[in-house]
Design a binder for these strands. Sequence first.
DNA 1: TGAAATGTTGGGGCG
DNA 2: ACGCCCCAACATTTC
Length: 473
Amino acid sequence: MSTDYNLVWFRQDLRIADNKALYEASLKQKPIICLYIHDLDSYGNWPIGGASKWWLHQALLDLDQSLSQFGNKLIIRNGNSLNIIEEICANYKVENIFYNKRFEPHLLQIDNLVTSKLKAKGHKVHIYNSLLLYPLESIFNKESSPYKTFTSFWKFVNTNFTVSKCLPKPKSIPLGLDQIPSCRLESLMLESRIISALEIQNIFKVSERSAVEQLYEFSQIKLVNYQSARDIPGLDGGSKLSPYLHFGQISPNLIFLHIQEIIEKYSDQKILAQNAEPFIRELGWREFAYYTMLNFPHTINSPLRTEFNNFPWQDNHNFLLAWQQGLTGYPIVDAGMRQLCHTGFMHNRVRMIVASFLCKDLFINWLTGAKWFFDTLVDADLASNTLGWQWSAGCGVDAQPYFRIFNPILQSKKFDGHGLYIKKWVPELANLPVNFIHEPWLDESLKLNYPKPIVNHELMRAKALSYWQDLRK
DNA sequence: TGAAATGTTGGGGCG
DNA sequence: ACGCCCCAACATTTC
């Protein structure tokens, strides 16, 4: 007599707390198969990057440990999602399948296929939204079309929806009697980039528990200065919650509600609420990124503004290489790109600077930059990455006008005035006086092991503007 | 979630 | 005392 099972299909919701699919499954009081499938086909033409693989490995390890505290364990498989789920459902008596929705275009197709096949075989499939704060499918403007500017979108959701409360942890996640075959985590070969992982490891502790601890630390120490500190790359003013959010190790609801709680608790400190607003707004940008990907799925591969299909992007391999390696000769750009290579992370302001530089100083297609970020960032997220890059290139939703061009020297002076960030990531410049740190080429007497600027920003700016003029015709 | 070019104003040096 | 010029400092426009 075999047991009756329910199945929870984990994807990018690698947590126990406030996980709708897991919670609902736990209410059924039946043995639960906790399944994770490493399915390379599910990534479409955006294969999982090295940094993300490393994080995923740690996250799966942590989820398995968490499940073991409930006497259960994570079943890991490698291969085609549909085949594996069908195989498990055929071999064990699985009544209900639970999973949380995802929004990547290629995943929507796979999910629909899996769902319809399972339903056809008599299984019940339960799908939840445990990824986002708001029900994005039902949000449209007065003309019943999708919002294309963030502020109007954000205003609408804030006035029409409230963020739902977090679910408690499941009371139990019962294990069945059968020995269900599972791969060893190591066999997925996620941990190939060991050297880079070593440095990442010093920055992030990859677990559900650490995500919450990091949130608490942020809200108690950094939140009060967030508005100004977040723009200074030499400070660690951000929450650094993005990779946890990406892998679903923390729910956006938990973050949102925790910050709201803090504001209410210290309601006499207006400054706290003032600083919390731009932070919550960042969660809003995440929603907006998913909203855009849902309504304009093609934008993961091509510009939203079709006139940009005619933009004369240039395929300069040496420029690309210099950018990737942090050898452009612009200290703030190089500092950012090296932080990325060494840690799998980059400060947000610097992400904008290096993106602007790639698109508007080197004229390299934003997709090329997007691919590099996707491969190297620990928080690589298709929705956010696409939105950010199209914003930088000026070809997406809420796009900054193309002529809005970052001056890497001014940005550097403004946000890294003392050159702390530059000195940390570009050691060749560590001994330079402040007045040359942003533009070391000005001191011709210096003999540095550091490249001269690969392009002249003034010239490239003028060129970018003329391209933009042509595009408007 | 720019930056440069251009326009305006007002204080101070100077004849 | 006065007008003139210079030029920060700030505001507006333009790309």
